[in-house]
Design a protein around this nucleic acid. Structure first.
Lengths: 251, 251
DNA sequence: CGAATGATTGAATAGCATCAAGGACCGTGG
DNA sequence: CCACGGTCCTTGATGCTATTCAATCATTCG
């Protein structure tokens, strides 16, 4: 009765290759604060070069832990390609995924000198590491870049609030659909893709959505059965856009 | 069997008076980004004066809507005293409370020139309104204040993440306890208070915690029955600190 | 006093978590 | 080449807990 469902099993770290627009220079993309209508303004080549001069470029394999919660925060990071997961380890040993960081995302902002989350590479990634003291000095002397930085942090705040909205739904299928829609809108792709990569595990997705991996699995199956999404090896394809968007908007 | 529970009913907007440290000047309090050990540095009198010169001071009654989601974002705001709730209206008519803003909190940051949430005064409040163009100009020319601003935004990001952790709990009583603990730690009060004001409605608390007002009510009753908290008119008192902290830490 | 708002309580339902088991895939080592 | 262990995904049966629907009570305001 169940249609052919391509199981996903994979015994090891993921290996989706990162794809970066301009692999050698760090990039930030953030929505502007006050200028209505204006599109995301990317960093200028000069600004990127200024960051690059202060940054160390790292290539890390999937599974690599970039920093741990509580470590002294000596650097901030910019994702140069690939997917990174940010999470908290709870006393019970459980993980709570705070979010995923994609290309041009900023992460590693500290509180009182320590990192608040642990971050781990989901796929192979490129990251730019910038010493904290250096970035403060750069921002102090470059008001324009400072504002871009501020915009990016505000972006992070919006994402956290969007997450709250998603998690507030009670139906697991709706949460998964909204999660996929969230990923779909990342990076400002002009034609919204109909296929979305899901390199993270079901457990990671579930931890982000406040669901168990089992519930995520069941939700995916229901979405398949309803003809809304199709799940293949490491991604999902939107089968019926109408119903998908209706489900996402159904709040 | 149920012990005397002072019901809370109140037919109208709340009227808890705001208490501000220095009512005439705007204030921001934010944890520093990288300096380990250093306490929250408040704004200097000069910085406060600079903001005050650009700000309009407003006194608003409880229930007053400060701005609505989607309005053109012409100003940013600093809470000068009182409690403000920030929420989103969903198509279904439901509300999702994003958070509460207290003294020295910053709010009204836009995305693409529009406000993303609606904010409403829970109690009578004092707010400082600063035109967007002005604040950008100030930050552009005052790197130190700009960094304070950035710290405050990062603070907001942390709060949103803490909310995610709270909401991830399954038991309603635990969520309510963590919510009360969150409020307890606001403002950096030296001796943590054993009584916490709850000027917002059960529905608002529930919306913040992803619970119905009924569930909040039941959770409060259970916390009473277990001798952990006592609820009076518009607040809660910690009866057994040990068990309260155990419950809050139980993750 | 009557209307409105908010809080509380009760009973039935719906939905996810839990526990348990099985299967698919990958890398490794004999 | 193939068997093995590990990781991840899937599926099933059961129990628990918040939601829902409904009713009641308290308080404030006109």
């Amino acid at each position: 009765m169940a249609e052919m469902k391509p199981p996903r099993g994979s015994g090891s770290p993921r290996r989706t290759p990162p794809r970066a627009a301009h692999p050698l220079l760090p990039m930030l993309l953030a929505a502007p604060l006050f200028d209505a209508g204006s599109e995301r303004r990317p960093l200028t080549p000069r600004e990127r070069q200024k960051l690059a001069n202060a940054a160390t470029r790292l290539q890390l394999p999937a599974g690599h832990v970039i920093y741990r919660e509580g470590d002294p925060a000596e650097s901030v990071f910019i994702n140069g390609g690939g997917v990174i997961v940010s999470y908290k380890e709870l006393p019970s040993g459980q993980r709570r995924v705070a979010g995923f960081r994609f290309y041009a995302d900023l992460f590693g902002l500290a509180e009182h000198g320590s990192y608040v989350n642990t971050t781990r590479a989901v796929t192979a990634v490129t990251v730019f590491r910038i010493p904290a003291a250096t970035i403060v000095e750069i921002l102090r002397h470059d008001a324009e870049l400072h504002i871009q930085f501020l915009c990016k942090v505000v972006d992070g705040l919006r994402e956290a609030q969007r997450k709250s909205i998603i998690v507030a739904r009670r139906d697991a299928a709706g949460r998964v659909a909204m999660f996929i829609d969230l990923l779909r809108h990342l990076g400002d792709r002009k034609p919204l893709p109909s296929r979305i990569e899901l390199p993270m595990t079901r457990a990671d997705i579930g931890s982000y959505l406040n669901l168990t991996a089992e519930s995520v699995s069941r939700a995916c199956r229901r979405l398949s059965e309803r003809g809304i999404l199709a799940f293949d090896g490491e991604g999902a394809r939107i089968v019926n856009r109408r119903r998908f968007e209706d489900l996402v908007a159904a709040l």
